[in-house]
Amino acid sequence: MSENAEGTWCLIESDPGVFTELIREFGCKGLQVEELWSLEEDDFNRLKPVHGLIFLFKWIGPSTSGTSEGSVVEDSRLEKIFFPRQVINNACASFAIISTLMNLDHPDVELGKVLSEFKDFTKSFDPAMKGLALSNSETIRSVHNSFARQTLFEFEEKSASKDDDVYHFVSFLPINGRLYELDGLRDGPVDHGAISDGKDWTNLVRTVLQERINRYNEGEIHFNLMAIVSDRKTQAERKLADLEAIGQATPDKVLELKQILVEEEAKRSRFKLENIRRKHNYLPLIVQFLKELAQQKQLLPLYEKAKEKSQSRVKKQPAS
């Protein structure tokens, strides 16, 4: 079995279930992660309050970022914004999530012991040192790595990441009335300007993201957007209690909130199930499965069929 050598970070999947559990296992309470499928205003409103966004996209190199939009913060704001430079590969999901969590200031959010202590400890560090400290934090790394798919076939993943597309995570969030982008490959936080008075910050970020996506459109860029939102179950419970306290818990309202509770509970158990499946070592099951197929004389037919499929796939592909 290949173990994770000291200091290595595994690739993890970009998935709301993984991110939600990742945040909980860092010890942070009151949040969950939802995937956004569009930049429509309604989709954002449905998830309110949205505390931050994690944006995953194909990384084409430093030359593509930084053109025209936003400016890198170099002034005293740096003392207030938690920003780590990303100094290692594969950790960008955790870097983006942690960068967001560390900068949240909302009554729904409880950062937890591990992250608060880390934030305190690195307070006076510059971005590079913060990044180094983060990548050396054993607690944070072990939580991150526990969400990797079983590392049994690690070499396969490694060779894939060399040829294939490289993905990168950045986060967007409002800090003191301005929209910032935290990208661990930049020198500092990127300032995308002031959020108009009385407007939700998500209006501004939707414009910024839309421009960026438009820029990529031609080259069929893959991207994926996750929202860090308040724990929806707690929120619904609180609303229900509030309505009851003031005697306004009408049957309609109660039904609506109870429905959210049921949905969220179902979602939680689904996330748990998926994560247990994700972390499982499947080699014994694969081996026994192959043996069972042989017992039932289905193994070689399955192989022949798979071989046919792969050959027809090869034929269809133009030579490269």
């Binding site: 798919r149 079983q150 993943e157 499946r277 499947y282 080699l283 798979a306």
Partner: peptide
């Protein structure tokens, strides 16, 4: 998860 593991195995 299993399908991915089986593909990786192959």
């Amino acid at each position: 998860a299993f399908q991915h593991a089986l593909s990786s195995f192959c």
